[in-house]
Design a protein around this nucleic acid. Structure first.
Length: 229
DNA sequence: GCGACAG
DNA sequence: ATCTTGTCGC
């Protein structure tokens, strides 16, 4: 799977055409269906050191309903691709995959920092990961990439559909009052309602769900250590 | 041509 | 994502 990614880098530039081919292949394999009960969630995120061209991918497995940390892992790699909106997965998915491979604990669902199908080609990083690993996945992002919010929300637990070209591609969810909402979308093998439900079950006192928040902290901490050694 | 644009 | 101190608010 990852081996096919090597030819999207031509010399020193990123081949957008091949990247789009890979995305259309992935989009064609997305399954939006009810997923089995979720107990263990793996949150994923990445941190960067642009100067040293290093990206650290981190994953933390959390268990419902108490959100205790069961396991975690990380992987540091060379940054091979620039950041281009719509192609985030090509930049940080490899490091996350390698971190996932170091994990010992099993999990039921992967929660990613970024979008799922709320993407121009219905292929955000959560969808890339969900399809490549053939597991349930959801995307949780801080900012909108595409789509329009169908109504305003303000109270914790409130949600508004996110529509793009007449299609509901995700939901804007209020995880904490007085703070900007997050964008939730299906990655693979789950329904939007379940995705929103799982996100709310994973939120404590912060804006972001605990699995991703912990992965964010781990990635940052490991990046800092990597800088000194 | 003019904005918009995950991390 | 990342560079960054103090500061406003619950």
């Amino acid at each position: 799977m990852l081996s096919a990614w090597s030819n999207i880098i031509n010399g020193n530039s990123f081949d957008l055409n091949k990247a789009r081919e890979i995305q259309s292949q992935i989009t064609g394999s997305v399954k939006i269906e009810k997923c089995p009960p979720v107990k263990r969630i793996a949150g994923a995120d990445a941190a960067y050191d642009i100067d040293k061209r290093v990206v650290v991918g981190a994953v933390v497995v959390t268990e419902l309903p108490n959100l205790n940390i069961i396991d975690s892992a990380y992987a540091a790699e060379n940054i091979a691709i620039p950041y281009i909106p719509g192609y985030l997965a090509f930049r940080e998915l490899p490091a996350i995959i390698h971190a996932l491979n170091k994990l010992n604990a099993a999990f039921d669902l992967l929660m990613c920092d970024g979008h799922g199908i709320a993407h121009p080609r219905r292929c955000g990083i959560a969808t890339h990961l969900g399809v490549m690993l053939n597991i349930p996945s959801i995307g949780v992002a801080k900012k909108r990439l595409i789509g329009s919010q169908l109504k305003n929300i303000s109270r914790k637990g409130d949600r508004a559909e996110l529509e793009d070209h007449g299609e509901i591609v995700g939901a804007v969810v209020c995880t904490r009052e007085g703070v900007k909402p997050v964008f939730v979308s299906v990655g693979n093998k789950i329904t939007l309602n379940q995705a929103v439900e799982v996100v709310m079950q994973s939120v404590t006192r912060y804006r972001f769900p605990e699995p991703i928040r912990q992965a964010h902290i781990l990635a940052g901490r490991q990046l800092r250590l990597h800088r000194k050694n």
